[in-house]
Amino acid sequence: MIGIDCISPLRMICLLAAATVISACLAWLGFDRLAEERQRLAVTEAMALVGTRPRTPIMTSNMAFGEPGRRLAAGRFETRLSKAALGHRLLVERLQMIPAQPDYQKLLMAEFVVSGGETEIKRFTHEIERGTPAIRFESWRITHTATGEPTVRIDARALALWEAGT
């Protein structure tokens, strides 16, 4: 093994300088990594803190469908739409529930097309939007079925909330 005294001072300084540069680079990388890890820790702690708080209902009472199961709530939602349409003597051309996305189980959505007299359509939308639990038309299109006729068609997507026990 070569003793350290065998290395000339110039060569020793070069070796030390190289080691210094390498260590400094690794330290620099360490600072970057440390910042990332501290950020991750802060996020984790914040998530834990928020998670310990009690969950509050999304809507005030009676505004959401409170059935114990989602299927029950979806059935009631669909029934309310069809009943209101038939009650106002509207033709239900289509009524279809939209399957829930995994993160949006509490959202109930349905697409429907109904047609009928202008006055009946207005009464129908009024009944749906004023009743409880709340139903809103997220997007809609209302058109006259033929020019000059009093019959109108509404093609809409209705939205409501389901929160068990509310």
Binding site: T44, M47, A48, L49, V50, G51, T52, R53, R55, T56, I58, D103, Y104, K106
Partner: peptide, 11 residues
């Protein structure tokens, strides 16, 4: 708590 946090975010 972290699982509950995800529910908070969804809400």
């Amino acid at each position: 708590a972290i699982v509950s946090y995800r529910d908070h975010v969804t809400d």
